[in-house]
Design a protein around this nucleic acid. Structure first.
Lengths: 134, 134
DNA sequence: TCTGACACCTGTAGCAGCTACAGGATCAAG
DNA sequence: CTTGATCCTGTAGCTGCTACAGGTGTCAGA
């Protein structure tokens, strides 16, 4: 129980080996110990950190945001105003994206509805694409 | 009125010069005529096509989808079942993305709400990030 | 102890979809 | 004819990985 190889870490967390090495390179993941031969040896904290990173990525946090959160003490340490701030900012972006997509959804749906679907020279979809944005 | 330079086309459409050349390279935009010295000379059809491409990109159509639509005759030609099909497929993707984001929005919002905001060791945001996904 | 299979190492190149140079040629106005 | 803006090609950069190539390390069985 002296530590995990990169392959075991990958299997445990579901993160590709190359991606783990990439995270290390871009300073998202702490550098692990090495064997005499140079193989990486990971501890439990790496499993936690990597799971944290993975989860945050799934939730759409950018690497920059993740680094910011990790830099504030990382998982399991302390909650600060800054963590909340990042999350709030992220939430705002999510909401704005939802609004954009909802508008697009309405435009697309109403356009398609008007579509006859045959081989006619008048196409609402094409019209929509040719018209200038609102 | 013999044609536009790439710079004029860029100004008219609001698309960067480099991006115009890039669109040409990846076969989104027809190759234009050239002057004797090798400068590109664009016609009105390029203005229409480029505006079309720009608009479609703004609406979130992928280059692949745009190519597919343009390949079907392009703007101002004919509407086909295929155009509708592409639009419907795109709409489905938009809706699925909205659903994903809405779920994330709820999770983020409810998490942040529980946040005290102080320097306390218990942080709902961190907890959320550490917990395994649903 | 040796061997073979596997895991691991570094480094580099690729993907999309642009953007941004460098270094040189061309164009249009004065 | 000169000047300065514009244009040309080609290459490298960006993000967030992914996928090699070609070379070691590790470890179990014989």
């Amino acid at each position: 129980m002296a530590g995990l190889s990169i392959g075991e870490l990958a299997r445990r967390t579901g993160v590709h080996i190359e991606t783990i090495r990439y995270f290390e390179k871009v300073d998202l993941l702490d550098v692990p110990d090495r064997t005499e031969g140079g193989h990486r040896v990971y501890a439990e904290k790496h499993v936690r950190a990597l799971s944290f990173i993975k989860r945050a990525r799934e939730l759409g946090f950018t690497p920059k945001e993740i680094r910011a959160i990790l830099g504030l003490g990382g998982p399991g340490k302390a909650c600060c105003d800054e963590v909340q701030e990042i999350a709030v900012h992220h939430l705002e972006q999510v909401r704005s994206k939802i609004a954009d997509l909802a508008q697009l959804e309405r435009l697309l749906a109403s356009t398609i509805e008007r579509c006859s679907g045959g081989h006619v020279p008048d196409c609402p979809v094409i019209d929509m694409l040719e018209s200038t944005p609102a």
